[in-house]
Design a binder for these strands. Structure first.
Lengths: 125, 125
DNA sequence: GTTTGACTTAGAGTGCACTCTAAGTTCTAG
DNA sequence: CTAGAACTTAGAGTGCACTCTAAGTCAAAC
């Protein structure tokens, strides 16, 4: 039956997502998973493809500095079902704006750093 | 003498740099300032243009996720004088690479978020 | 069947970067 | 001269996001 069972153990899920098993449990406890993670009879977690896909998306949100609390808000909207689509869209659009602002600030800082690098290269201090 | 004296109080420096007075003192305690901040006879800090300029640059380093400890390393190199120029250049180039990587990751995440936004707009969940 | 390693939980601990507090001193406006 | 705001210090407190621990259960290999 191993060919049919595509679910992953927590350490496999950790390897796939680049997170630690600690972090996966922490995210779950923090209410960041869309659905309850399935359990084997032994009570060990079994991650589905959908779970992994969600963790990958949530990682994108986190890597763009969305706080855990905001991710949880988003998750709660998803749990409310179809009716919350406009609210989810709004949340993502707001976050999008913050990401663009971050990219902007970082690009600006990079320019300043590059300028400094250039002065070191010219030896003009 | 106010026309001749161009130095700023800590609250003025805070306003100029966008940091809090708490943070300015914290950075100083953490060894992030290039030189000792001048003091008025009253022992109040007086920030020079050079101090402000440095805080502005250090803010660029911080906004690109350079840890306090790395900024301190850089400061210590500056204090060593001209001989440390190659080391400073190397440090900045290494950091530059990390900034480019961050920009890259964030742009990639933005693309994924935009894709999700598009699915919400199409109503295809 | 037993050892070794992966898994479970609740809760404690860590590291970073601030951010605030308390108690006292100094500056500024009226 | 006085009230109140701004400044000083050392040190404590905060919030975030992990990260680890302890004590126990379970699974895979020999």
């Amino acid at each position: 039956m191993t060919l049919v069972d595509v679910s992953l153990s927590i350490s496999e899920a950790a390897e796939r997502t680049g997170l630690s098993t600690h972090t996966l449990r922490y995210y779950e406890r923090s209410g960041l998973m869309l659905e309850r993670i399935e359990r084997a009879p032994s009570s060990h977690r079994r991650y589905s493809d959908a779970d992994i896909g969600w963790v990958e998306f949530l990682t994108k949100l986190r890597s763009t500095a969305m706080p855990i609390s905001k991710v949880r808000e988003y998750v709660e909207l998803v749990r409310l079902g179809e009716d919350s689509t406009p609210a989810r869209l709004e949340l993502l659009l707001k976050h999008r704006a913050s990401v663009v602002a971050q990219l902007d600030e970082m690009a600006n800082s990079l320019a300043v750093i590059d300028y400094k690098i250039a002065t070191y290269r010219k030896g003009s201090k």
